[in-house]
Design a binder for these strands. Structure first.
Length: 207
DNA sequence: GCGACGATGGGCT
DNA sequence: GCCCATCGTCGCA
């Protein structure tokens, strides 16, 4: 049996594509009340890299909303969109360079009852198979923007799990980019793994 | 299973 | 005013 440890900051201080890829199969953990954990295996990520990336919120410079992306790696960047949804990113690379990984999907493994109470979902999978869904399931909103995932007492962090085999990873264009020009619209900066193919001993399926 | 579409409000030009 | 790094529902297969 493995004894998972939280990712240290050094693991986020790498090129964003590497971090986005490496986060697949890792465990996202949210400490809830009464010592209860809400957690899931990360199944889908996207990279947003610098102000040259015209899909990245950093494209129009630093503002109040996106300031977290310029901060140190290993912090949360949480933003609000479509009038009702929150999205969770993890900041990457060097402080001063705006980049982050969007978490787009988890396979829930702990605290499933609480997640069902947090959002009306028809299945376990549907609790976390979307960037706004996982935020709702884990109760992530504006108050988590800028939070450090690498502190010893962090209430939100990544727990280290065995790396997912390269052969299980698929890539493709990032989702939901409508007005974004090429090459940014189609560049394959989205990473996915089928949780059913992650070995059970790593907590991938079915938990 | 899949495509279309409306909801809804903050951020930016 | 317009634009969203989305989601749930509805219609149709």
């Amino acid at each position: 049996m493995i004894n998972p440890k939280p990712w240290p900051r050094s693991r986020f201080e790498h090129p964003t594509l590497q971090v986005a890829r490496a986060l697949l199969g890792q465990r996202l953990v949210r400490r809830h009340s009464h010592g209860q954990r809400l957690a899931g295996i990360i199944t889908e990520t996207e990279a947003y890299i610098g102000s040259d990336d015209l899909a990245c919120h950093a494209r129009s410079g630093q503002t109040m909303r996106n300031a977290s992306m310029w901060g140190p790696a290993g912090h949360a960047y949480v933003f609000f969109t479509y009038g009702m949804h929150w999205m969770l990113n993890i900041v990457t690379e060097a402080e001063g360079f705006p980049a982050a990984v969007l978490l787009r999907g988890i396979w829930p493994t702990e605290g499933i009852q609480i997640m069902h109470a947090n959002r009306d979902a028809p299945s376990r999978r549907a609790l976390g198979d979307g960037p706004a869904k996982l935020c709702q399931a884990l109760e992530i909103d504006r108050q988590w923007d800028g939070v450090d995932l690498c502190r010893k007492d962090a209430q939100l962090f990544i727990e280290s799990m065995p790396a997912v085999d390269e052969i299980l990873v698929t890539t493709g264009p990032r989702v939901g980019l409508t007005q974004v020009p090429e090459p940014w619209k189609s560049i394959p900066w989205r990473f996915r793994v089928d949780p059913r193919k992650i070995p059970a001993e790593t907590g991938g399926f079915p938990g």
